[in-house]
Simulated scan of single mutants.
Amino acid sequence: MPDPNAAALAFLKTRRSRPAKTLTTPVPDEAALRELLTVAARTPDHKKLEPWRFVVLEKPALDRLALMVPDRAAALDVPPEGAAKMARQFSDADLVVAVIGAPKPNDAVPEIEQVLSTGAVCYGLLTAALAAGWGANWLSGWASFDRPFVEDGLGLNAQEFVAGFIHIGTETVAPSERPRPDIEAITEWVRA
């Protein structure tokens, strides 16, 4: 029989993201954030390609991104409420880590494996932040898929993409539990 890590399992069974709009200062300092990034980078990564990277967005960078939103929203015909919500995602935040997918050509590792590894990094960072006692949330939104926004605002090249904006801060409100998947409805047992 395995020797379970009961504390880790209990944490994972009750893990709950914190709404980004409820996060405030203080945020992790550079040393604390480096530790969280180190944990997140310890993810499944076939052939050790590291098909992802981090862009740490501090308050001035977040304010700059918020100012970019109206022009991009207008160019994309995003309704005013969608533009305002996206701008607030940046302007109301104090620390966000953009997890950037950066697939690398490799005959042994299909791009989909690298994309999945990038998603695992997002979840790893989110979970590490929560385990460290911070509030955290994984967001995206229309701006994360807009090439001019991510290339001009974050310096991404044409092959890179935003897998998620991980908001990290001090939680002001603990959210209530939400409905979770019915495991029996989504699980198939194949025994032969």
Rank of each mutant, 00 (worst) to 15 (best):
M1P: 06
D3G: 01
A6C: 05
A20W: 14
T24A: 15
P26H: 07
P28Y: 07
A32P: 07
V39T: 14
R42T: 12
K48E: 13
L49K: 11
L49A: 05
L49C: 05
E50I: 11
P51H: 01
R53A: 12
F54P: 09
L57C: 08
R64P: 01
R64I: 00
A66K: 07
M68R: 15
P70C: 02
P70G: 03
D71V: 08
R72G: 00
A75R: 11
P79E: 13
P80E: 13
A83K: 10
A84D: 12
A84W: 03
A87F: 01
D92E: 14
L95R: 14
V99F: 05
I100C: 11
P103N: 11
K104I: 12
P105T: 12
Q114P: 01
S117K: 00
Y123C: 01
L125F: 12
A129E: 00
A129T: 03
A129C: 06
A132M: 02
S140K: 09
W142V: 05
R147Q: 02
R147T: 00
P148Q: 11
F149T: 06
V150M: 09
G155I: 12
L156I: 13
L156H: 08
N157W: 02
N157P: 01
A158W: 02
Q159V: 07
E160L: 03
E160Y: 02
F161G: 00
F165Y: 15
I166W: 05
E171Q: 14
V173F: 00
R180Q: 05
I183A: 14
T187H: 04
W189D: 07
W189P: 01
R191S: 13
